[in-house]
Design a protein around this nucleic acid. Sequence first.
DNA 1: GTATATGCAAAGTCTTTGCATCGTT
DNA 2: AACGATGCAAAGACTTTGCATATAC
Lengths: 144, 144
Amino acid sequence: MTQKDGRDALRESGHRMTPQRVLVWDVLRRAGERHMSAEEIFHEVQKTLPTFNVASVYRTLSLLSELGLAKETRLADGPAVWELAHDHRHHHLVCRACGSITHHEEPGLARVALHLLEQHGFAAEELDLVVTGLCHQCRVRASA
Amino acid sequence: MTQKDGRDALRESGHRMTPQRVLVWDVLRRAGERHMSAEEIFHEVQKTLPTFNVASVYRTLSLLSELGLAKETRLADGPAVWELAHDHRHHHLVCRACGSITHHEEPGLARVALHLLEQHGFAAEELDLVVTGLCHQCRVRASA
DNA sequence: GTATATGCAAAGTCTTTGCATCGTT
DNA sequence: AACGATGCAAAGACTTTGCATATAC
């Protein structure tokens, strides 16, 4: 997903290309795999655009979400975190020691979806798996 | 998990047995598979104990959670929902049409946990899978 | 020029906390 | 009697909304 794609999607859906929207998009793109809360995005964009407002972060994120360009994830407590939409299914590994959030692809989830449809008539549209535990680094650190 | 178990766990952990705690426990027990928000629990208990307060719901739920007797789940937007702890792993199927929340046992998740540990060194302690989609009834209704 | 987006501030939702009082042990 | 739990109200964290102004088209 490139920056151009984001602009195109905005234009094609009849929405205006404001500096605010472009900046939020850029921040998320630079974040890569990192997940950002609305407030983190706000602070980052504000460096460039001092009058920028939190309300605009939320409005922009909702819009990107509706367009399928960004995705919100609620991990345990605290604010929701955001990332640009990926093509591939992935789930989140949250380390309870260092707080790191990593992605992990899991082809097995597709099988779960199929099973739910065939055996239980439930048409899964979204599967969110959040795994909490100890990441490799923290396990090594703990046993040292 | 019986009501007696709940009382025992409270006593053994050195906590007091108040009517409030017993009532919250009873409400959750009667709820069975149904998931209740703090406010729903509050209203239910208040029928019996008019001076009952929301703060006590949250305090009681935190306590039950610490004792491993109840479990909180955050499903999309809105308040967290609670249920008594189960022995078996299960995930949640949320129907976006009727809002129903059902449980589903999934032995496959244990395999995912093993895979994460062996291949990625991540020691999974909790796996929360939330599946959003259309339940059987709503699919039938939609296609009718 | 016009409709949409922004900034600001206020309100809304859900949850937690401080403190005096009450009740279990 | 002592300490923990409750009720109440106030505050806290996160997010949404109303409205006047600004701006992309």
